[in-house]
């Protein structure tokens, strides 16, 4: 495992825990897109179907269990426990606009036409765009709370670090996963605007506002 990947995974865990912490301590899901969280939950479940069939390492299995359970907990907090605080009317992105194309693409582009591989490819494609409802919501309301910004930054950093990991693995191991790399680049690019706003505003102690 490369250091970039370890840093990426830790950044991913940090993002997930930050979000849970924010919702739990403020007892509010305000400003958080339930649709993005629902899609991330679908991503983890469809990707980690191999949890019981293919053992990689204790680290790998532990992370998979952590991602699935934290994601289910997040969805539960948003849609059940703190449902009254969830900004459903600002969360207007249509999930089928990304789920259907991700499924069609997975049927066309996969490493084997098997249920597991199609499910894996679907999860990779869906992950690339699952953040769109959240970014759409930030644009629509024109701002994000600081902790939501930190969450998005950690989540964006995770995939950016994975790109460095893929360069490293290609260079030193000759390892190359075209599906993950393509989707990962798309995913990272989606955070471009956000990264800019994060560095120019949040780091300087201001709130992230989309409109001047």
């Amino acid at each position: 495992m490369t250091l970039f990947r370890l840093a990426g995974d830790l950044s991913h865990v940090l993002a997930i825990l930050l979000l849970l912490y924010k919702i739990w301590t403020t007892k509010s899901a305000a400003g958080i897109s339930g649709k993005t969280q629902l899609m991330f939950c679908m991503v983890y479940v469809t990707r980690y179907l191999d949890l019981f069939t293919s053992f990689i390492s204790v680290y790998n299995s532990t992370m998979k269990v952590l991602f699935i359970s934290a994601s289910v907990a997040t969805v539960y907090l948003i849609y059940f426990k703190f449902k009254a605080t969830y900004d459903g009317n600002h969360d207007t992105f249509r999930m089928e606009f990304v789920i259907v194309p991700a499924l069609i693409l997975a049927l066309i582009w996969n490493y084997a036409f098997t249920f597991f591989e199609i499910s894996w490819a679907f999860s990779i494609f869906l992950e690339a765009v699952a953040i769109l409802p959240q970014l759409f919501m930030v644009t629509k309301t024109g701002e994000a709370e600081n902790i939501t910004s930190h969450y998005l930054f950690a989540l964006g950093s995770y995939r950016a670090l994975y790109i460095l990991n893929w360069i490293d693995r290609y260079y030193f191991e000759g390892h190359w996963d075209p599906i993950a790399v393509t989707a990962g680049i798309v995913q990272t690019v989606l955070y471009g605007d956000f990264f800019y706003l994060y560095f120019t505003r949040v780091i300087k102690g201001r709130k992230l506002q989309v409109l001047p």
Binding site: R5, D9, H12, R47, D50, S54, I56, N60, M63, K64, F67, N110, Y111, A112, T114, F116, E117, W120, Y162, N165, D177, A180
Partner: peptide
């Protein structure tokens, strides 16, 4: 191959 590949990343 037909079985796909082993996905060792998260």
């Amino acid at each position: 191959g037909e079985e796909g590949r082993q996905h060792d990343e998260l």
